[in-house]
């Protein structure tokens, strides 16, 4: 995220606090839906600033979000998405690279801490970072599932869920159990060592991944 986008995001975060609680759910649904679109992060923030302004102006007159937006929130968001310029292929690629690098350093730090604890506890104390095939599969599973969750949440932002709360809860509980079960199974039973290097070296590699991710991120609008 570049500087301009970051500044606008901060301003919007502050301004949206003035939105009344009664208007907040629909406003959030609109923003979540727009987040799932192919608008650039900067354009998402520009639109968000305008929507906040419309809502706050409406609140000032005593109008709720229903009156301000005319009730057809998804259709309005679809029209906004249709009008705004889309991310270029380069922007999409850079965004995927940044997300992947971020996922790598975050999961890498978790693995590093896990390895550090194991090394400290063990009597050998060799300070070695061990990555098994199971760990690698888990990284892929976590990134895939995270993407699916984001896609699902953004695409269903306007769907009424109130009448199916228990069913939805059971579905989520079942899916989460299967995923966590698979992750635990992978880390226990798929223990073929793929990487075994110094903990310090992996710390440097993770730092480099982090810095590279930040540098590319500044170029993404």
């Amino acid at each position: 995220m570049n500087k301009l986008t970051k500044e606008l995001l901060k301003k919007n975060n502050t301004r949206e606090k003035a939105i009344f609680k009664s208007n907040n759910d629909i406003y959030t649904n609109m923003i979540v839906y727009l987040r799932g679109s192919d608008l650039t992060e900067y354009d998402q923030e520009v639109v968000r600033a305008d929507i906040i302004e419309l809502i706050l102006d409406g609140q000032q007159r005593g109008d709720d979000i229903q009156k301000v937006m005319g009730g057809q929130y998804k259709e309005i968001c679809d029209e906004i998405i249709e009008v705004m310029p889309k991310k270029t292929k380069k922007e999409v690629t850079l965004e995927y690279v940044v997300i992947s690098l971020n996922a790598l350093w975050i999961l890498g730090v978790i693995a590093l801490v896990k390895n550090l604890i194991t090394n400290v506890i063990s009597e050998e104390n060799q300070m070695v970072f061990v990555l098994t095939l199971g760990d690698m599969i888990n990284v892929a599973v976590i990134i895939f599932v995270a993407n699916i969750i984001i896609w699902y949440v953004t695409q269903t932002a306007f769907e009424a869920r109130a009448d199916k709360k228990i069913l939805t809860y059971l579905k989520i509980w079942f899916i989460a159990t299967v995923i966590f079960g698979a992750i635990i199974f992978n880390s226990i039973y798929i223990d073929m060592v793929v990487v075994s290097i110094s903990l310090w070296l992996i710390a440097v590699i993770l730092l480099l991944i982090f810095i590279t991710g930040k540098m590319i991120s500044k170029k993404v609008s």
């Binding site: 305008d50 929507i51 419309l54 102006d57 409406g58 009156k67 301000v68 937006m69 005319g70 009730g71 057809q72 929130y73 309005i76 029209e79 906004i80 249709e82 009008v83």
Partner: peptide
């Protein structure tokens, strides 16, 4: 016509 309608 709401503001939301004319905004796009």
């Amino acid at each position: 016509i709401s503001e939301g309608t004319i905004y796009p």
